[in-house]
Design a protein around this nucleic acid. Structure first.
Length: 551
RNA sequence: GCGCCCGUAGCUCAACGGAUAGAGCACUUGACUACGGAUCAAGAGGUUGCAGGUUCGAGUCCUGCCGGGCGCACCA
């Protein structure tokens, strides 16, 4: 019996109560089944009686007793207790709970996946850093989180397109080109330029590829550096992200929106529909209607488009490409954009809720207990490659994806470089490697996945592991709907602990100790071991972290 | 000044409004003739920044403070 099955059984019991006239209440939409922290509280618990009490006009415990009386008759339920203020604590029959092990093994990679978001086409935009330098640690956080979120949304049935927006029409790129040119000439970095040593490398590569470039007139040379330098830098960004295991479906260039006429068309549409107003020689979008603190200029008084014009055209472009939901992961320094992005949607008579902006807080570098300022312009950045070199892809992705995005994250440089074993990812990966090792040992004992007698899974450690495994689908759902990949990581850490404890329980061995004979219980536990392997592997997969068979 | 986010164990972080606030690391003690100890068991560590409020119940929701981060352009 899965938690979902139990929820259905509880709902049926509530219905029975209502039909029997024991209390009157509208049937709840769903019943929350949770796994109690305290094993004395049964395998599963529900607060449904507490929820219904107010509507029924009766004491929660009274409601709970009534539901319990009906629930006790349900198939596969060993006992139901009413506890505390009115919780229902449910203990399943061993066979009923144990059957889950086979279900999971048979579902394999499909276990935890659902079709809740089937048919939804999601455009997930993340990282989107301008290639004026290597990928910073902050951007790397969004790479890890964004890619994990994409995997999680896909696991709930959505079609997800990973998108990287390159704002190549702006002056950051000009500053980058000027920096390249200056360094190629051996001049100091311009006042507003980029000082990192990578600028010298890129400049040298441009010169190598175009030997005569330094003899060209200054403005022509700068154009060569702009074009080739950006291409080289962007290539490095893509390569570094690919090494990190993050591949984008679309790298979208802002300039393409200008060249295709999409920006002009979008502005024209908005003028026609009266969504822009003219004032002080400029055209404005009334974004204040959507919570923005001021209206935004779309066409500047000099006739040029403002940055937001590109965003408006980009929104429309994404919708025209057929996406139902546009999710943006932006850093906290961009939170002022939320209102104007939504205003843009509304201006096109579209639903502002098609735009969903996730604001991620900053990554702070800490060294010797003190914060270290980091920035491309300051030239002291920690890059995605630095991270990978220090701890590897798995530990890097895991540590950046394991915290909620709305908390700022402190990364200690010394901890990162010296003591990588402190990363909980190894605890989880080791649990997975252990399941594989147990399976290998079982095979050498001639224990395969044949005999399955779930009523033999009577040890409390069996129940603890089974209920933990049963939670997984709801964890995936929650991670998807809350856009919270870190929940997967924390679940896995908890599951790994439960597995390690099960492994260390002598009564729960898969292979017999010493020369004891192989029993049906041993054989049945091979299924449970494999179920744990399946969930650990599936969960790590959602984070883009390897599930090694050996460590 | 206005707006958004955060404040939880020594550190890094969890906790659909639910029961005794949890993990990892670090610390103390124990288990290596081990289904590989990258593990397990036990211990210690907390007034969840402060003060009110909402209700059967608040780390979680509301209000006000305190502290920190990030924004408040006809820049992109």
């Amino acid at each position: 019996m899965t938690p979902a099955d139990l929820a259905a059984a509880v709902l049926a019991a509530v219905q029975d109560c209502v039909q029997a006239g024991e209390f009157g209440v509208a049937l709840p939409d769903d019943v929350a089944i949770e796994r109690p922290k305290n094993p004395e509280h049964g395998d599963y618990a529900t607060n449904v009686a507490l929820r219904l009490a107010k509507g029924a006009g009766k004491a929660p415990r009274e409601i709970a007793e009534a539901i319990a009386a009906h629930l006790r008759d349900a198939e596969g339920i060993a006992r139901v207790d009413v506890a505390g203020p009115g919780f229902l604590n449910v203990t399943l029959a061993a066979a009923s709970l144990g059957a889950l092990a086979r279900d999971i093994v048979e579902a394999g990679e499909r276990y935890g996946r659902s079709d809740h978001l089937a048919g939804t086409r999601i455009n997930l935009e993340f990282v989107s850093a301008n290639p004026t330098g290597p990928v910073t640690l902050a951007s790397t956080r969004w790479a890890a989180v964004g890619d994990a979120l994409a995997r999680i949304l896909e696991a709930t049935g959505a079609s997800v397109s990973r998108e990287y927006y390159f704002n190549d029409a702006g002056n950051q790129i000009d500053r980058f080109a000027r920096s390249l040119l200056a360094r190629a000439h051996g001049e100091p970095t311009p006042e507003d330029g980029y000082p990192g040593s990578y600028v010298d490398d890129i400049a040298a590569r441009v010169v190598a590829a175009s030997p005569g470039v330094l003899e060209l007139p200054r403005d022509e040379a700068q154009e060569v550096f702009r074009r080739q330098g950006v291409e080289l830098m962007f290539g490095e960004v893509k390569d570094a992200l690919a090494r990190f295991g993050v591949e984008f479906d679309t790298y979208f260039l802002e300039s393409s929106l200008h060249e295709s006429g999409a920006v002009d068309a979008a502005v024209e549409t908005l003028k026609q529909s009266g969504r822009l107003f003219y004032e002080d020689n400029a055209w404005w979008l009334r974004s204040t209607e959507f919570g923005d603190d001021k209206d935004r200029v779309v066409i500047k008084s000099d006739g040029n488009t403002a940055y937001i014009a590109g965003d408006l055209a980009y929104f429309r472009n994404k919708r025209e490409r057929g996406f139902d939901l546009l999710i943006y992961i932006l850093g906290a320094d961009h939170h002022g954009y939320v209102a104007r992005l939504k205003a843009g949607a509304a201006a096109f008579e579209d639903d502002p809720d098609t735009v969903e902006v996730l604001i991620g807080q900053m990554v702070n570098l800490v060294k010797d207990g003190k914060p270290v300022r980091m920035g491309k312009r300051a030239g002291n950045i920690i890059t995605i490659d630095d991270l990978v070199d220090a701890v590897g892809v798995d530990a890097g992705r895991y540590s950046l994806a394991r915290s909620a995005i709305d908390t700022s994250l402190d990364v200690d440089l010394d901890l990162l470089t010296k003591r990588s074993n402190e990363n909980p990812v190894f605890y989880v990966q080791y649990a997975h490697a252990r399941t594989c090792n147990v399976a290998r040992n079982a095979e050498s004992f001639g224990i395969g996945l044949d005999v399955f007698e779930p009523d033999l899974l009577t040890n409390p450690s069996d129940a603890a592991l089974l209920t933990a495994l049963g939670e997984y689908p709801r964890i995936v759902d929650a991670a998807a709907s809350l856009r919270a990949p870190h929940r997967i990581a924390h679940y896995l850490e908890s599951l790994a602990g439960t597995y390690h404890r099960w492994y260390d329980t002598d009564e729960c061995r898969v292979t017999p100790k010493g020369d004891a004979p192989v029993t049906s219980a041993n054989r049945t536990r091979a299924w449970l071991n494999d179920a744990a392997r399946t969930v650990l592997s599936n969960g790590l997969g959602l984070l883009g972290v390897a599930a090694p068979e050996r460590m």
